[in-house]
Each structure stands twice: as structure tokens, then as C-alpha cells.
Design a protein around this nucleic acid. Structure first.
Lengths: 338, 338
DNA sequence: CACCGTTACTTACACGTGTAAGTGAAGTGT
DNA sequence: ACACTTCACTTACACGTGTAAGTAACGGTG
């Protein structure tokens, strides 16, 4: 079997020089190539099954045609999986390829990016400030979720804010938060919790009562017990996730209680199952598909119109600077549980 | 800012030749390098923040240090997400990097692999036979889920088989199957369905009654109606997924029925929520983490011991040939719904 | 002193590609 | 008939790396 098919082989088969092959296959304008040889080269390439070496091309051009998506060091939830899917679609629409890499906890992100030389970068997880700065200095187009507390666009922050807004709007003043006890989700729990505490503080509420639980009814029931007993009981809970909201509903049932009468429960992610819960789960939906497209767009925009505002470079999460926010990345789904 | 730091820069900074730098950094045995220059090179590299260009290295060595994981053209479910996570861990343990790429429906897999030149390949989705053959001919170490009907190791096939086995073991003879109606999951539904039909045929049962449903109670209720009415009603259903099993439970409730009395329901994937359903969901658990490790191991094994059996090359799903199967990739989780 | 082996490097080439610069040959204008 | 442009290519270099082959110095034998 032919070990490798190079452009040299194609050139030889077509009876032309290697440069001609390159010109034909890259459709370089400004070069004149007769129609007959063009056809000849094209058919030779097809017959040999030639595909150019990414390595060599990257080496030559200093930049690959890959868009690198950096994932948090945890199993992907539905939201991120959908985001990946959508971003993949969008990126391919422009002839680029999206590859995903789970960021190791050790954090060699900069090294990876420098050595892979991707055309653009999509960052779906916050990074330590210094590492983020190092990434930006590589001057790779970047769309990131590096979330600041005053940035209303980070989905994780938006979720927390929306949860609190809905619950307080319904009259609740003592809030609880259920976050996973399993490590791996800790940074995300941290962000979510920070957003919720921020919102509570802004509204002059008491800080939320945090419970760390596993995904089972016993844990949830115990947490429910701690929330609802005591002199000033919690009356509503923000769950980390629809999964955890489900667990809380089970926990309530174990006490003979139910939502929202005894304890309002609001989830996050709007799983397909959310509507099937009893009671149907009020939750915050993440427009993961839209976010994926948006991120991809932001990341590759500088590649398309290099004349536009290449100095703007990396875009922070969302069309920063544009006053009118067209579509929010998260929305409330009002059902029955809160 | 330094646009690129090459080994040439490091060499210059350390006052040695570029080759020496390469020898030092790659720890090439058989070359003698004095301790003093070694230190000097190392510190120079660290000071300049040098990291070698993957492109150049790949070009030179003819093979990159990336392990490519090809994903099906659909949003990742929990099982695949976990598998990705586990495989990523395992691969990094050997100094390699795992990157994932969603396979486009158009199917340029071969081209991608040839141009990326990955060190190994993990295929989590079946491919058309011709494309699979083309992939194998590239002689890249490969761990695949290319499932044949007589291969008991493919998780999707194993799930179907186990579902049928459990239900028939409980005395059911008329089986139903619930698969997604949304496209995107169609190939997987196809595989799952094939496994179930195969099992039924082997046991001499009537072919299963297939219903395509969406993830809502109405669809599920309608399907439940069609299954349970008629002269020879279905008494047990294999769901595509725990999600769909949940939907079926809701559909049953809409009829005032419940599992397993009126209709036994068995799921797949063993979501964390499965135990929280009413009744708790009997399901088939996929050991995604273990599969991820196994796949990674299979894929990179030929890279480690090149002397062992490099001719064996691509491994089919599972340690093919080894008689004793140590751990099955799927197991039954017996709860209450079936 | 000639010979050889070891140490500590350096020089030189190859990997496959993109593209600027060069080269004949043919055509066009004056 | 000569310059000058256009066409249709080809030659040559650069990208950054790994590594085989070469080399100079040095120390120890015979």
C-alpha cells in the first residue's frame, strides 16, 4: 500500500511540477493555469487519493486550519456537548475543523495552543488569570467564557442570576443552594455559587444556605431537612442542575413534602426530562446550540475579515461593546416546581 | 512579544548548536552530552518558554503525538462524554494528547486521519464498511466500535441483548422498542434495534413492535396506548435510553397505568436519575469510564511495545482473541420498573 | 609516535508544503 | 524587427524539527 501520497506524486502523475499542483489545488488567484492541466492535476489527485499533510501545511503557513475548543476537566454535561456539536457545525461551514481537547488540571493550555497553532480558540472554561493572559498574548483569535462578575453573558453567571431573580420575584427571601459534593464540578459550582451570592447581596437578601449533596434521594432528603427546619427556614432552592433538582424533588417526597408548596425548587439546563418531573420542573434553559454558533462565529470572525478590526482580537464572552443584546443565552422556563 | 520561540533561539541562547538542543530536550540515549551544557540548554529553554512546534515535529517524525477520537455526528450523550473523559485521562498518562473530532455526516474521516497523522485512533461510531477499510489501510493503531452482530462487546449491541435477556427472563414474550424519532440518533437507534431484533429472533420470539417517539409525555402515552391495546399486547418495552424510559413512565401515568404491572420498562445508560424515578428504573449500565480506559489502552498499546505484535495492528472492539472476557462493558441494574 | 576509542559536540539532510521569483514561448503594438 | 506584456509553467527557498554522519580534542595503549 502506498505509504504516503504527497503532492510530489501527484505532480509526477500529472507530468507537471509540484508548484503547479499546489497552485491548482489551492485555487490560487493571480496564477494562470491552463484548463487542460488543471483537469489533469485534479484527476491525478483524485485518482491517487491525495490529501495534503496538515503538518507540512501548518508548518509552512504558521497556522493550521483547526479550531481548538478547550473543555473543562470534567465529563461534559448536556449543555457543553450540544455547544460542541453546534460549534462544530458552524466551524465546518467555513472549511475549518473543530477539535476538542479536555484541559488537564495541570493546565498546559498555553503549551498546547502554541504547539498546535490553531487558527482560532474557543475557551469553554475559565482559566487562572495569568494563564489566560498568556493565551491572549499568543494572538490567536479567541472566544472565551472567561467570566467576570459584571458580565451578564456568561451562561453560568446568567443561570445563577436568573434563578435568584425568579425566586425573589415569587416572594422568597431565604434561599438555599444545592451544589454537587463530587469534585470535578467544583469550579463550575464555585462560579454558579458566586453568581447566586452576588445576586442575593445586590438584592439585600441574606446569603444563601449552601448544601453539598450527591445525586441520591437520601442526601437530598437530609439537605431538605436542614433547610426547612430551624427558626428561619429556607423556602426556595437553586439547584446546580436539573439532575440535582430531580434529586431534591425526591428528597422532598421522602419527607412527605412537595414543591413548590413546601420548598420551591428551580433547576438549570432544561433537560428533556425536566417537563416530565412531578411537579414539572421550573428551570433555566441554556441555549447551548446558539451559544455554540455564537462562539464559533466570534472565534473565526477575525480570520474572515482580517481588514475589519483585527486589533480587537480576542472577543470576550458575547458581543462586548454592542449595546443591544439580541438574544440572551439563558432564559427562564416557568413550570410548576417554583 | 516574541512571535515564535524555536529551538534555534534556544540554541543561540545556550551557545550551542540546534542539534544539541534537540538531543538534550528529547533525552536521546546514545548521545553523550556534558552535564553543564545540559543544564544550560534546559535553563535557556525554560527561560524563553520554548515549546516545540507540533507541526514540524509531526512532519519530521511522520506521526504526531495526538490520539484522535472520532465522535458520532450527534450531540454527545452522557456515556460518550464519560468515555471521552476517561480516555483522555488514560492517554495523558502516556504523554500523549487526546483530541476529539465530531465526524461530519459527509464523512471525510480518512482524509482527516491522513492529514492529521495521529499516533492512534479511537473510533466511537461505526463507519461504512468501505470507509472503515480505508481507515485500517492507513496502518494507524486503531480501537474501534465497528460492531458486528456476533461481537458481544459493542456496548450498543450488548445493551440490546441484555435488555431482551432480562425481559424474557421475567417471562415476557411480546416486546416493544421505543426509539427516538429525531434524526441524528438514527444510526444508533438502528444498531440498538438490530441487536434487539437479533436477540428476539434467536430466542424464537415475535419481532419487537417499534415505536418512534419524542421525549414528551404525549408521544409516549400514544405509544403506550398502541402497545397495550390490540389482541396480543406488548407487555414489556426496551427503551433507547433512560431518558426515553422516563418518558414512557410518564406516558404510563397518563393512562393511569404503572410499571412493571401494566407494562415493564427497561432503560439504558443508568443515568444518575434512574434510581430516582417512580418506580426506580431497571436499566442497563454502560461502564463508560472503563470502556474509555480500555479503548485508550487498545489504541496506544501498539505504540508502547512495538516489538510485541505490531502486525496485529488495529484491534477490534475488545481484546479480540482472548478467550476470557474479564469485565463486560455493560451490566444489568435491577430496580423496580421491569 | 601511530593507532584507536571515547567524549562532546556540529554539520547537513529530510520531512511536505506554500509561494516569490524566474524562465521560455507566444502574442501584441509601433 | 524589436520591445513589452501575457501565459503557463518551473526553480528555489523557507517553515522547525529529528537524527545520521562527521569532526575535533583528548586519553590511553602498543
Amino acid at each position: 500500500m502506498h505509504r504516503k501520497v504527497t503532492s510530489h506524486d501527484v505532480a509526477q502523475a500529472a507530468g507537471v511540477s509540484r508548484a503547479t499542483v499546489s497552485y491548482v489545488l489551492n485555487g490560487r488567484s493571480g496564477q494562470s493555469i491552463s484548463e487542460t492541466t488543471r483537469k489533469r492535476v485534479l484527476s491525478a489527485a483524485a485518482k491517487l487519493g491525495y490529501s495534503p499533510s496538515t503538518a507540512a501545511r501548518t508548518l509552512r503557513r504558521g497556522q493550521s486550519d483547526l479550531v481548538l475548543m478547550l473543555l473543562p476537566p470534567e465529563p461534559l454535561g448536556r449543555a457543553l456537548a450540544t455547544l460542541l456539536d453546534a460549534a462544530s457545525d458552524q466551524v465546518e461551514r467555513y472549511g475549518l475543523r473543530l477539535i476538542a481537547h479536555r484541559l488537564p488540571a495541570s493546565g498546559g493550555a498555553v503549551e498546547l495552543v502554541r504547539s498546535l497553532a490553531p487558527a482560532a480558540l474557543i475557551l469553554t472554561t475559565p482559566l487562572p488569570d495569568e494563564e489566560f493572559a498568556a493565551l491572549r498574548s499568543l494572538e490567536v483569535p479567541l472566544a472565551s467564557l472567561q467570566q467576570k462578575m459584571d458580565d451578564p453573558l456568561g451562561p453560568d453567571l446568567g443561570i445563577g442570576a436568573l434563578q435568584v431573580k425568579h425566586l425573589t420575584g415569587a416572594g422568597h427571601t431565604r434561599l438555599g443552594v444545592a451544589v454537587p459534593c463530587s469534585p470535578g464540578y467544583d469550579w463550575r459550582a464555585q462560579v454558579r455559587l458566586a453568581a447566586i451570592e452576588h445576586s442575593c447581596a445586590r438584592l439585600g437578601l441574606h446569603p444563601p444556605v449552601v448544601e453539598r449533596i450527591g445525586l441520591d434521594a437520601d442526601d437530598a432528603a437530609a439537605a431538605v431537612g436542614r433547610w426547612t427546619q430551624g427558626p428561619e427556614p429556607v423556602t426556595a432552592v437553586c439547584a446546580f442542575d436539573d439532575d440535582y433538582a430531580f434529586a431534591l424533588l425526591s428528597g422532598l417526597a421522602a419527607h412527605g413534602m412537595s414543591a413548590p408548596a413546601d420548598l420551591a425548587v428551580i433547576g438549570a439546563e432544561d433537560l428533556p426530562l425536566a417537563g416530565l418531573a412531578v411537579p414539572p420542573l421550573t428551570t433555566v434553559s441554556v441555549h447551548a446550540r446558539m451559544l455554540g454558533v455564537l462562539f464559533a462565529q466570534l472565534a473565526i470572525a477575525p480570520l474572515l475579515g482580517a481588514e475589519a478590526d483585527s486589533q480587537a482580537g480576542g472577543a470576550q464572552s458575547g458581543p462586548s461593546g454592542s449595546a443591544a443584546q439580541p438574544v440572551p443565552p439563558v432564559t427562564l422556563v416557568r413550570r410548576a416546581s417554583a
